[in-house]
């Protein structure tokens, strides 16, 4: 089963006077795990709700294998959006929720669902309204994974889980992705835990697409230059600086951009330390200040 491509061209969404998404353009090749990063209100949920056919865009186009999601059953039955915790019938038992999803999702894998509720310790006979927030999230995740939809998106769906359950989720996600490859989009702000799962990263900031990059490439673009203040200033002159910190005579500047071998050697020769920047820090720096972010990434695409 190959997953269809998701293509956005000039995608815009407005709620009254607020612009949730502004001229977003990207192509997601099918079958990869994508990280959708952004601060609260950046537009992640808006983007995913358009993908799931919850509403129509205000402008531009979003297509899945060439078709727009809204009210198109060919598309909506291929997209599963898992929210935290999402719509669940309070009065129903867990087993009834799973039966419901089984009837509605053509690729439903009952054995997978059974295994997952056991792993997450969600009791089958309990009614949804008696479950804790974490267990409800686990149930939503179970439904999302067992549905085996060719495009599965998790909108901060696992934030309600405790740490052991989160790790169980990552393991199950990877295992399922290995046996049933499909497009998976994970929207989050718990970045460091999941960063290694992403093949590509998209960063939304105030409704605009800040960047869309291969994970490894993005990681290699950040560097922290630390040393005596004057030397650091000389070295980073001309580079895009995302942020800086001072401690007495020492200064540390986070730069964005490729630092080739030659530059790195010069830095070391000048007594400067060049350290890598974790994805989470890079994300924080890039979304801190509009002007810097725009300069760093050459404006939104």
């Amino acid at each position: 089963m190959t997953s269809p491509d998701v293509v956005a061209r000039g995608l815009t969404l407005r709620y009254g006077r607020t612009t949730a998404l502004d001229d977003v353009t990207f192509t997601l090749a099918g079958g990869r795990i994508y990280g959708l990063l952004g601060r609260n209100g950046a537009g992640k949920t808006s983007l995913l709700s358009l993908l799931a056919g919850f509403r129509r865009p205000s402008g531009g186009r979003l297509t899945v294998a060439g078709a727009e999601p809204f009210e198109d059953p060919q598309v909506t039955e291929q997209v599963a959006l898992v929210r935290d915790p999402g719509p669940l019938y309070d009065m129903w038992r867990v087993s009834e929720v799973l039966d419901f999803a089984a009837r509605m999702r053509p690729r439903w894998d009952a054995a997978c669902a059974e295994r997952l509720v056991e792993r997450f310790e969600v009791p089958l006979r309990r009614r949804v309204m008696t479950l804790s927030h974490g267990k409800k999230s686990a149930l939503s995740i179970t439904v999302g994974l067992a549905a085996r939809a060719p495009i599965t998106a998790f909108d901060e769906a696992y934030l309600g889980l405790d740490a052991p359950s989160r790790y169980a989720f990552y393991d199950e996600l990877l295992a399922d992705y290995a046996t049933h490859p499909r497009t998976i989009i994970i929207s989050t702000h718990l970045i460091e835990e999941v960063a290694s799962l992403f093949e590509e990263v998209l960063i939304l900031h105030r409704g605009r697409l800040l960047l869309h990059e291969d994970s490894d490439t993005l990681r290699s673009r950040g560097a922290a230059v630390t040393g005596p203040a004057a030397a650091v200033d000389r070295f980073v002159d001309g580079l895009t600086a995302l942020g800086e910190r001072r401690l007495g005579p020492t200064k540390s500047v986070t730069v964005y951009g490729e630092l080739d071998g030659e530059r790195t050697r010069r830095a070391r020769a000048a007594g400067l330390d060049i350290d890598p920047v974790p994805l989470q820090d890079l994300f924080v720096h890039l979304t801190e200040d509009d002007a810097r972010a725009a300069a760093a990434t050459g404006g939104a695409s």
């Binding site: 056919g53 009210e71 909506t76 929210r83 719509p87 419901f100 549905a147």
Partner: peptide
């Protein structure tokens, strides 16, 4: 909402 969330139009 529950039906639309499960892929129904």
């Amino acid at each position: 909402p529950a039906y639309v969330a499960n892929g129904v139009t």
